[in-house]
């Protein structure tokens, strides 16, 4: 046939096929070394600090004091109260973020085509930095400048309504954190919802499910894995957060919002007690890992099996 008259392809050069392992190593080792240096080193150094007493007055000095820093944490009343505030803030933030995210996703899903551009507006709070969110919510909540007083003013009252009260500041901050993080959750949930087959909704209609039943049995189940992943992400972010609380309340009023990160900041950078701060920071790390681990055990394993 005609093809045989064509010139055969010249024999390809023998390329030295590198093995998967060496290719993976060549690519990842430099990055891993960088990460090791800039993540593991500080971690190791913090570990070192946590066994020492660091002084700056009269020249820098580090004195070995064994487990003293760690045992001090246990008897430190401010540690336990800060931990309590961190947990309270985290639980509230996670629940609010997922709930608001789900609500926004449901609204976005039902938008008719000509209103779709609203999606681009709803995402905006996600782009606001935590420190920006802190600034927004401090002015929004304060009695002098806040929305509460403004609303009271409409009704002819001249009371100041302070949303950042010692009693409910943690709840107020959780609302702000949810404001910041919920849009991203909403977008992922929306993407998930759009892949749910429309037939399932037809089936729900045939089965004469109520709206709530449809939501519970049709809308929600495919979202559960995403919800789990975001509950982990939100947990980590809420426990790590510092800049948001720093700009929003500075731990106030009267220490009522001094979560663990804020207390750590004060110990290390205001009191300059670096050894003690380092020791306490390992407790924070343990709490973060413990919380995500617990979430996985209680919830994630179940979702993976399905």
């Amino acid at each position: 046939m005609a093809d045989t008259a064509r010139s055969a392809p010249s024999p390809p050069p023998r390329t030295a096929e590198i093995s998967t392992l060496s290719f993976a190593l060549i690519i990842s080792v430099p990055v891993l070394i960088f990460l090791l240096v800039v993540v593991a080193y500080p971690l190791a150094y913090a570990f070192y600090l946590s066994f020492h007493e660091i002084r700056f007055f009269g020249g820098y000095s580090a004195t070995w004091n064994g487990l003293a820093n760690y045992s001090k944490v246990f008897s430190d009343q401010s540690f336990w109260s800060s931990l309590g505030r961190t947990l309270r803030f985290t639980v509230e933030t996670v629940i609010l973020t997922l709930a608001v995210g789900l609500g926004l996703a449901l609204i976005l899903k039902h938008l008719p085509a000509k209103w779709r551009w609203l999606r681009a507006l709803i995402i905006l709070p996600w782009a606001v930095s935590p420190y920006g969110a802190g600034i927004f919510f401090t002015y929004l909540g304060r009695g002098q400048t806040g929305i509460g007083t403004a609303v009271a003013g409409w009704f002819g009252s001249d009371h100041t309504v302070n949303l950042i009260s010692a009693r409910f500041v943690v709840e107020y901050l959780a609302v702000g954190a949810a404001w910041n993080m919920a849009p991203l959750v909403a977008f992922f949930l929306l993407a998930n919802m759009l892949t749910t087959p429309a037939r399932l909704y037809d089936l729900a209609k045939i089965d004469q499910m109520s709206r709530l039943e449809t939501f519970w049995h049709v809308t929600l189940p495919p979202l559960r894995f995403t919800l789990f992943v975001f509950s982990c992400i939100t947990t980590v972010l809420a426990m790590k957060t510092f800049d948001y609380i720093f700009t929003a309340t500075q731990g106030g009023p009267g220490g009522a919002s001094a979560v663990l990160t804020y207390t750590l900041y004060k110990i290390s950078f205001v009191n300059l007690d670096l050894g003690y701060g380092a020791a306490m920071s390992f407790f924070l790390l343990a709490v973060i890992l413990g919380a995500t681990g617990l979430l996985y055990l209680l919830w994630g394993r179940k979702e993976e099996r399905q």
Binding site: L35, L43, Y45, S268
Partner: peptide, 16 residues
């Protein structure tokens, strides 16, 4: 390393 709180690595970074 995603879950490391910046506040904990801040101290070593600062001293370093």
């Amino acid at each position: 390393s995603v879950s490391l709180p910046p506040v904990s690595t801040l101290i070593p970074f600062y001293t370093l």
